[in-house]
């Protein structure tokens, strides 16, 4: 893990709009916390599929990352997803990797 995020109830991860409500107050639609977690899980799974991994919301207060062999890890936020994904998946999770980008173009989040 590359950080202390979450330990002793930190400020909340920067990607979560609830951590900085003032920043996102000009949104046209109301985004509930639950809906945001659903959208995050759906999109991150479109990326994780390339590595044979899957993320599920875990009771609304963490995420469960699963590999095909049954290995699991509980993570609190997106930053922790990538470190855990490299531990239980197949090597480096690189957003600049051409093979990943090609698989994102083929798939998309719908599946």
């Amino acid at each position: 893990m590359c950080g202390l995020c979450g330990v002793l109830g930190g400020r909340g991860h920067w990607t979560e709009t609830a951590s900085n409500p003032d920043t996102f107050r000009s949104r046209a639609e109301t985004h509930t916390w639950h809906r945001e977690r659903q959208a995050r899980t759906r999109l991150v799974n479109a990326v994780l599929r390339h590595y044979g991994l899957r993320l599920d919301d875990w009771s609304g207060n963490a995420y469960m990352l699963r590999g095909k062999t049954g290995r699991t890890a509980l993570v609190d936020n997106l930053t922790e997803v990538w470190a855990a994904a490299e531990q239980i998946g197949r090597g480096a999770c690189d957003p600049l990797d051409a093979a990943l980008l090609a698989s994102l173009s083929d798939g998309g989040p719908g599946r």
């Binding site: 920067w14 990607t15 945001e36 959208a39 997106l78």
Partner: peptide, 18 residues
């Protein structure tokens, strides 16, 4: 830019290439 997609991308970029 979609905020959720941007957060996924940036955390991944920082993790691998920070």
């Amino acid at each position: 830019l979609d905020w959720t997609a941007f957060g996924i991308w940036m955390t991944m970029l920082q993790h691998r290439h920070g």
